[in-house]
Design a protein around this nucleic acid. Structure first.
Length: 135
DNA sequence: GCCAACGTTGGC
DNA sequence: GCCAACGTTGGC
């Protein structure tokens, strides 16, 4: 089982939208490195949902329910999408500033490459973020 | 194949 | 609003 962080602009698509739909397709990825990460996603993997822009926080935990497949309607069949399902919301959002303060997250992809929209996390990184958002 | 110009993303 | 980091485009 792998761990991921999916970034989204909340004015376009937010954690709350995923919660409403319960299950949805995560698509529109048009970056090769992000696509390579998408390609490695498997059903059962965990994905933290992060809002860029105004929020800059992790809001909830989603689960991959369908591994990468060609995105329907994409102009190039090599673009991929996955299906994810909303899991539980964090008790409180974990901000980017908080994550930056954590020594254990210093190597995290999100912090090193802020523009990448699909970022792999280690189990440790995932656990630290979830713990920060608990209680 | 190189590189300048330009566009986009996202943090500050 | 600005800037850094990238990606893309197009001239050569």
């Amino acid at each position: 089982m792998k761990y991921w962080l999916l970034k989204t602009e909340p004015s376009t698509y937010a954690w709350s939208d995923l919660v409403k739909k319960k299950r949805d397709r995560w698509d529109g990825i048009r970056n090769h490195q992000a696509r390579n990460n998408i390609a490695a996603m498997k059903a059962g993997d965990a994905a933290l949902i992060y809002h860029s822009g105004e929020d800059k926080s992790v809001f909830g935990i989603a689960r991959v329910v369908k591994a990468a497949y060609p995105e329907p309607g994409a102009d190039d069949p090599r673009w991929l999408a996955v299906d994810i399902e909303a899991g539980r919301a964090l008790d409180r959002p974990v901000t980017l500033a908080e994550m930056k303060q954590q020594k254990s997250l210093a190597g995290m992809g999100l912090l090193k490459q802020s523009r990448l929209s699909v970022v792999p996390l280690t189990k440790e990184e995932h656990d630290v973020i979830v713990k920060l958002g608990s209680g």
